[in-house]
Nucleic acid binder design. Structure first.
Lengths: 213, 213
DNA sequence: TGGATAAGATACGCAACGTATCTTAGGGGT
DNA sequence: ACCCCTAAGATACGTTGCGTATCTTATCCA
């Protein structure tokens, strides 16, 4: 009953481990995420895990990657501000305190395992379904005439995610509605409007060649 | 020679400990910041520290607070973009990878010691010399006519710090010049311009009553 | 059918947290 | 001038969890 004595191998085992790791993460959070716990839950033992991942940070990131495909998210309420509010809320729910705790945890271990930083960074900065959702929302606003035609730089596409993440990490809790409203009204909406300003003609503000780069 | 056998007490001792803690932080970073190390460096022992601070996170925050007063920083180059580049660079240098590592570390321990989160959050969200510097830079740009008269919301004043911190935490390293240029050119400058847009008259963008709040 | 490969179990060394216990210095009241 | 009580300093301990080493045993494949 307990153990049908069948030994899982390769991909099958790996799936089981990653599932177990993900379950642990969601249940106890990164701070209490232990390799032993994952092993126990997956019905295997530590060495099996350490043969595949160098340390717990990599294991956690692997579990995260495994748990992906973000379902399409691009609210369409017919109004830019509402779209943004919904989008930020969705990002916030998706990113979740878990992810932020995990990011914080992983980063705090980065000194010991510098290679991990790269894994995390690429996970966070690549174009993602989230940045694409932002682009889509903006494009629709342009079509509606709420914004002038815009080219949104990647940095600006990332901004919502970055802001939400920052909030999670520094506050350690879910974003309240007022926070989301602030981020939209005081930061992101102005940002989008500013991107649409072609040339303020106030001098010194043009492309402003990157003489510092 | 080694120990003049004089026993420090109260405030004097506390100063010595906080100095030692700060020195440890800057030398080895939060990940390797140990209570034992601080005790040894301060020439005392662990229990003395644990009588004052509940855990290492609080000790680290106390050391940080002890180490404060940010010297005035508000570059004045005569040009908004240059001011911002300089300011972001300064913030980035000041915030430093140390602080971000520490923030990440502290947050990752927040699950075990939830009280600490509040300490950290207040440290990060209060108006600070940094947000005042941003306001000053903006005000000067307004005087110069580079921007229309503006009221910058607190959230927007915080944004530079938040963005820099986010970058540190997710990348785990110093911001390169290009990153700073991106943050200024693709995010913050557009944001400021957007705040200056009075009413685009494109509909649906006005104050947009916070029907979600 | 036999041997290489990898799974599973166990035990260890190590670092660091946080605590408990004890001794001893020195400040302050009388 | 004395004594006592508070807090400093030293030491040792229990605990957790990482990461590794060692050994046995199942399963795949040639």
């Amino acid at each position: 009953m307990s153990e049908p004595k069948s030994r899982r191998r390769g991909a099958e085992l790996e799936q089981a481990i990653l599932d177990a790791a993900w379950a642990e993460l969601t249940e106890v959070g990164y701070a209490r995420f232990t390799v032993e716990g994952v092993a126990a839950r997956a019905g295997t033992s530590k060495p099996v895990l350490y043969r595949r991942w160098k340390n717990r940070a990599e294991l956690a990131l692997a579990a995260w990657n495994h748990r992906v495909p973000v379902t399409g998210i691009a609210p369409d309420t017919g109004d830019l501000r509402s779209d943004l509010l919904a989008l930020f809320a969705k990002i916030s729910r998706r990113t979740g305190s878990l992810m932020s705790e995990m990011i914080a945890g992983v980063m705090s271990e980065t000194f010991r395992h510098p290679e991990v930083a790269e894994l995390l960074r690429s996970r966070l900065t690549q174009p993602s379904p989230l940045t694409e959702a932002v682009r889509l929302v903006v494009d629709r606003a342009v079509e509606r005439g709420e914004l002038p035609p815009l080219e949104v730089p990647h940095r600006a596409l990332r901004a919502p995610l970055d802001l939400v993440r920052n909030e999670y990490i520094t506050c350690g809790q879910s974003l309240g509605d007022e926070t989301i409203a602030e981020l939209v009204d005081d930061v992101y909406l102005p940002l989008l409007r500013g991107l649409g300003v072609v040339d303020p003609g106030t001098g010194g503000l043009g492309a402003g060649g990157p003489d510092t780069a």
